[in-house]
């Protein structure tokens, strides 16, 4: 396996009865890349991600994530990735600090490291005054930024972000993306899904899933050229409308 390919997927398929939720998808993601994983609701994105993060067993095909096999090494995958989605982020009834300690503990970090990471993270996000507040009482944007930082607490090779910015105000949404750029710049691979097509333009490369298959995969610039479209929104509408 090439060292710079942190995700390698070949012919990956998931069947539910006769229905191919994910139908033989093939792609690779490089180290430090921001990879946009787009598709309409029901196109198969979530099913594909579940296989990549080791919580759903593929029907056929091959895939390695951070060098580990999605069939046989799912525990190693989980240790080496971060995950954040809007549905599952932090515990609302734990405080900011408790959440950080909890997730640090889950990933098996030593107490001393958790303390250091926690202090650094709180300082960087400017959360010094709310460390003992319940996460449920924080504005959504703060929660999402904290959640992203927590998903990086164990220095994962790859972080999976499933619609991380839905409903967030435009300024916070951009601060969030600056955090993504920063993580990618430091070598973390970012695998992100979004319904905001301007965010698709922020990605190094973008894949678009339609009915279980990847119908397009390239840089936003090349996709726009290929489909003679002015924006990624037009590319998406062109493809997903069929």
């Amino acid at each position: 396996m090439s060292k710079s390919k942190v995700i390698q997927v070949e012919g990956l398929t998931k069947m539910f009865g006769d229905f191919a939720a994910v139908n033989s998808i093939t792609f690779e993601v490089e180290k430090g890349e921001i990879f946009g994983f787009l598709g309409a609701n029901g196109a198969g994105k979530t099913t594909a991600i579940k296989m990549l993060i080791g919580i759903s067993h593929p029907t056929s095909g091959k895939a390695t994530v951070a060098g580990f096999d999605v069939y046989t090494q799912t525990e190693d995958i989980k240790k080496n990735i971060g995950y954040m989605s809007q549905k599952f982020a932090l515990y609302d009834d734990l405080t900011v600090k408790e959440n950080i300690i909890f997730f640090g503990g889950i990933y098996g970090l030593p107490r001393k490291i958790i303390k250091e990471k926690s202090d650094a993270l709180i300082k960087e996000l400017g959360l010094e005054n709310v460390t003992n507040q319940l996460v449920g009482s924080l504005p959504l944007g703060w929660k999402q930024k904290l959640s992203f930082s927590v998903s990086l607490i164990h220095d994962p090779k790859i972080v999976f972000l499933d619609e991380p910015t839905g409903g967030v105000d435009p300024i916070t949404r951009r601060q969030f993306w600056e955090m993504i750029y920063k993580a990618a710049n430091q070598g973390t691979t970012v695998f992100v899904t979004t319904h905001y097509m301007d965010e698709a333009e922020y990605c190094d490369r973008v894949s678009i899933m339609v009915n279980g298959k990847i119908e397009a995969l390239d840089t936003p610039k090349k996709l726009k050229e290929q489909f003679q479209a002015e924006s990624m929104n037009d590319v998406f509408l062109e493809l997903a409308r069929g």
């Binding site: 609701n41 409903g167 097509m197 997903a240």
Partner: peptide, 13 residues
């Protein structure tokens, strides 16, 4: 009230 939140661009259109 937010009929299109979390809805993909095609369905939104």
């Amino acid at each position: 009230d937010e009929p299109t939140t979390g809805v993909d661009p095609v369905s939104r259109k």
